[in-house]
Simulated scan of single mutants.
Amino acid sequence: MNTAGSVAYGWGALIVAAGVSFYYAKKEIDARRKDATLRGNRPLEKLSWEEKIAQQATSTDKHLSPIQNSIPKDSFKPPEEKK
């Protein structure tokens, strides 16, 4: 039933199928990246993780500042202790 030939055939078929799917997936991903670059949606420079976090923090602050400014400061007072 599971002879050496059938196992080798199964592994060979699996490797060929994985290789073909990798080829087509990579081709599609590269096309998406090229399209995004041409439309200007993809940044050209590579950022480190620290730069990405700093960039996200500044963009989040810009979006949340109108909301934060509209809330009265005294509405976030801690509850007073009961004596």
Rank of each mutant, 00 (worst) to 15 (best):
V16W: 05
R39H: 06
P66A: 04
S21D: 06
L14Q: 12
F76T: 13
K46A: 10
Q56E: 15
V20M: 09
M1V: 09
S21L: 11
D74Y: 04
A13I: 05
K83M: 02
A4Y: 08
W49G: 01
I15T: 13
S70G: 01
P43G: 09
D61G: 02
D74V: 05
K26Y: 09
S70T: 10
R32L: 10
S75Q: 11
P43T: 08
K62T: 14
A8K: 15
A8S: 14
T3N: 10
Q68D: 03
L38V: 13
W49K: 14
L14P: 00
S21M: 14
K26R: 10
P78I: 04
N69F: 00
F22S: 13
L14H: 10
S65Y: 01
A36R: 08
P79R: 11
E50F: 01
S6L: 11
S75G: 02
P72Y: 05
W49R: 15
V20G: 02
Y23I: 07
I53L: 04
E50K: 13
A54Q: 11
H63T: 06
L38R: 12
P43R: 12
K27Q: 13
K83D: 10
W49C: 02
E51A: 12
R32H: 05
K82C: 00
S59Q: 13
Y24I: 04
A13N: 14
M1E: 11
S75K: 14
T37H: 05
A36G: 04
L14G: 14
L44P: 00
A57Q: 13
Y23G: 11
E81K: 15
I67H: 07
E80K: 15
Y23W: 15
S59D: 13
A13T: 12
D35G: 01
K77L: 14
N41V: 06
G19V: 02
K77Q: 15
T60M: 07
K77H: 07
A18G: 04
S70N: 08
